[in-house]
Design a protein around this nucleic acid. Sequence first.
DNA 1: ACTCTTTGACCATTT
DNA 2: CAAATGGTCAAAGAG
Length: 163
Amino acid sequence: MQNNNDQNNSGNQYNQSIREQKRSDDGYNWRKYGQKQVKGSENPRSYYKCTYPNCPTKKKVERSLDGQITEIVYKGNHNHPKPQSTRRSSSSTASSAIQSYNTQTNEIPDHQSYGSNGQMDSVATPENSSISFGDDDHEHTSQKSSRSRGDDLDEEEPDSKRW
DNA sequence: ACTCTTTGACCATTT
DNA sequence: CAAATGGTCAAAGAG
């Protein structure tokens, strides 16, 4: 038979609405590029990368079986304005201070460790495109309190803040 | 047709 | 050097 094409569409994958899932978007688009299980925890770690040409920004998200985020790690900085999903455009001045790549010694910003009960509020208010750069800021306070991330139970509340 | 998620394998790094 | 862990890429599937 000549016709062979066939759209074998089997299997079903749950998908809500793609690209519009406002679940914990910082206002940027992320593309999942991997998922691995780390030892010591059965939580799968998801690796996300900012969708942008030249955006070395990467995000590591570890979720618990309960759906709570156990750990979030941002790596890199965005060098491009925030995409306007469908939110208020506001004039936003759009100064577009798109700095050209290169911020001096920009090379691997390092990790941002934080305490367990710490507040990682950095840019948790996606509003307006206020390009918030930060350049390289090492917060090396050398203030290592106790707790060095061993195998202690996390005392994080289920819904402490609004993720 | 395009875009994005998912999964496995492979590579890089550390001990 | 090898094993272990983590990290990244790529192909396929699904919408």
